[in-house]
């Protein structure tokens, strides 16, 4: 029978080894991203794939989250006669937390898993080996463009998610809860600060890096066969989603501490 302490030890060592491998990989991707040579065509192609094609899913998620948020704040606020704060709390929640988190989670599914499946298929069909024999580094040609594209486009998607999320809240508030449209929008604009927007954008940059690195890392380590590629996609999505939520908490705590 295996000693439970041995199991705990093995799992702990495995976890630290995985964190180490992921950190080294992330460091190599980041280094390739900030040093020449850059494949501009690849970066632009990935920006379209990661950014533009994610707009519908991010927009739809944001509008429903904004609408549900407004309803719940209205319900909770009415218990204390504070219904008038719906626009303030909706814009605060979306710009500081939900816009970035919803975008991060949706892209963990759509983009990170997609990258892992694509890179994984390239790994098992020897296309990544072929790249190296053709004097092209996979870090520069495959991973860095995805990293740069995700880091550049996630803040734009978060801006879109913020606007659409606020509009979701506005729709429900004006057409369902009887708010005056002009007053709602004026309260929103007056309440939100530059720092609230900045918080969401900083988170978006980090989440973009996490999503791209997790996808590339799991794809690069993919085992052979359909099962191996499928597993890489699943691990990438789960890993990216958990890291997005964990780093969201860390950053929120940090921003509160420093008064941002």
């Amino acid at each position: 029978m295996t000693n439970p302490l041995q199991i705990i030890g093995r799992v702990t060592l495995g976890l630290f080894a995985e964190i180490g491998r992921l950190s080294v990989f992330a460091g190599r991707v980041a280094t390739a991203a900030v040093t020449p040579r850059w494949y501009l065509g690849e970066i632009l192609r990935q920006m379209v794939r990661i950014g533009f094609y994610s707009l519908p899913v991010v927009g739809l998620s944001a509008v429903f989250i904004g609408a549900a948020l407004a309803l719940n704040i209205y319900e909770g606020g009415s218990r204390y006669g504070a219904e008038q704060f719906v626009p303030n709390i909706v814009v605060l929640g979306i710009s500081r937390e939900l816009g970035a988190v919803i975008t991060g989670l949706m892209l963990a599914g759509r983009v990170s898993a997609g990258i892992a499946a694509e890179i994984g298929a390239m790994r098992v069909t020897e296309q990544i080996d072929a790249l190296e024999t053709l004097s092209a580094s996979p870090y520069r040609y495959l991973y860095a463009p995805r990293f740069l594209a995700a880091v550049a486009t996630l803040p734009l998607l978060v801006v879109a998610a913020n606007i659409i999320g606020v509009m979701g809240g506005w729709l429900v508030s004006v057409y369902g809860l009887g708010f005056d449209s002009t007053v709602y929008l004026r309260n929103t604009v007056d309440f939100v600060t530059r720092d609230d927007i900045l918080v969401g954008l900083i988170k978006a940059v980090l989440f973009g890096g996490i999503i791209a690195v997790m996808g590339c890392y799991q794809g690069d380590r993919s085992q052979a066969g359909a099962t191996g590629v499928g597993r890489a996609a699943t691990l990438s999505m789960v890993g990216a989603a958990v890291l997005v939520l964990a780093f969201n908490y860390v950053l929120s705590t940090l921003f509160v501490e420093i008064g941002l």
């Binding site: 024999t133 092209a136 040609y141």
Partner: peptide
Amino acid sequence: RARIGMLFQSGALFDSLTVWENVAFRLIN
């Protein structure tokens, strides 16, 4: 590596590139 060629078992052609872009990959990149 520029002096070494390799034909992989599966061909390992890049799916996202056309035939000529595959052949010219090293020349361009």
